[in-house]
């Protein structure tokens, strides 16, 4: 004898079979079909608008993983992406808002390279000051 709950679960099952036949899979065909990144997702530290940076070093001090090195004399800003934990603190504290996040995750890398940006002299008189 089948009892009532078994009959009910049988109907659930048949319903599910038909649902599964008609529905799309829960997974994606990954390399061919990629999901759009969500807006404002913290994918990676996108980079720096180096011309706007004033080399105050706040980002380097506030970074919880000490991934950023700012050199005022050299006018350089450098991030070690393998140290970065993508917390976006640096973008929040930057007084010039010249750091930005990117929504896409970092691609796999073969070498541990650091991303170094050096400010080029902007206009002629600025450049003269820098070289002087």
């Amino acid at each position: 004898m089948v009892n009532r709950s078994e009959v009910k679960s049988m109907f659930d099952m048949i319903g599910n079979i038909f649902k599964n036949l008609g529905s799309k899979p829960a997974t994606r065909m990954y390399p061919f079909e990629k999901r759009e990144a969500f807006k404002d997702a913290r994918g990676q530290l996108g980079g720096i608008d180096i011309d706007a940076c004033i080399f105050c070093g706040i980002c380097a001090r506030k970074c919880p993983s000490d991934a950023i090195v700012v050199n005022k004399a050299e006018k350089s800003w450098e991030v070690d992406r393998f140290k970065c934990v993508v917390c976006s603190v640096c973008t929040e504290v930057c007084p010039k808002k010249c750091l930005f996040m990117s929504e896409n995750y970092t691609d796999a890398a073969y070498t541990k390279e650091k991303a170094k940006h050096v400010q080029q002299p902007k206009s002629t008189d600025n450049g003269e000051q820098a070289s002087a």
Binding site: A26, F38, K39, R42, V85, V86, S88
Partner: peptide, 21 residues
């Protein structure tokens, strides 16, 4: 499969899937 939906909420609201900071 159901857990994945929660992870997507997390990514959409907080920016990352697991360590949402």
């Amino acid at each position: 499969r159901n857990r994945e939906k929660v992870m997507d909420i997390m990514e959409e609201t907080a920016g990352s899937r697991v360590i949402i900071s």
